[in-house]
Computed example of a mutant assay.
Amino acid sequence: MTSRLSRIPRSDALDNRERILEAARALFATEGLNVPLREVARRADVGPATLYRHFPTKEILATEAFADQMRVCHDVVDGGLADPDPWHGFCSVIERICELHARDRGFTAAFVSTFPRAVDFTAGRDYALRAIAELAGRAKEAGNLRHDFVLDDLVLMLMANNGIQATSTAARVAASRRFAAFVIQAFQAAPEQAPLPPVARLALVLPGMTL
Rank of each mutant, 00 (worst) to 15 (best):
S3R: 12
R4M: 10
L5E: 10
L5P: 00
L14P: 04
L21H: 10
E22T: 14
A23S: 13
A24R: 06
R25C: 09
L27I: 10
T30G: 07
G32K: 12
L33Y: 07
L33H: 00
N34H: 14
V35R: 11
P36S: 05
L37N: 05
V40D: 04
V46N: 04
G47S: 12
A49R: 11
R53N: 11
F55N: 06
L61I: 00
L61E: 04
A62N: 03
A65Y: 02
V72D: 15
V72H: 13
C73S: 14
D75W: 04
D75H: 14
V77Y: 02
D78F: 08
G80I: 00
G80H: 09
D83R: 10
W87V: 11
H88P: 00
H88A: 14
I94C: 06
E95W: 02
R96M: 07
E99H: 00
E99N: 01
H101W: 00
A102P: 06
A102W: 02
R103D: 03
G106F: 08
T108A: 11
A109M: 14
A110D: 01
F111V: 04
R117W: 03
V119M: 02
D120C: 00
T122N: 04
G124A: 03
D126Q: 09
D126G: 08
A131N: 07
L135I: 02
L145D: 05
R146C: 06
R146P: 07
H147V: 14
D148F: 10
D153L: 07
L154T: 11
M159Q: 11
N161L: 02
N162K: 10
T169D: 08
A170P: 00
A170H: 11
A171P: 05
R172H: 06
V173P: 00
V173K: 01
A174L: 06
S176A: 13
R177I: 01
F182L: 13
A186M: 15
A186R: 12
A189E: 15
A189T: 09
A189D: 12
P191T: 11
E192Q: 10
Q193V: 14
P197L: 09
P198G: 05
V199Y: 10
V199K: 15
L206P: 00
P207V: 13
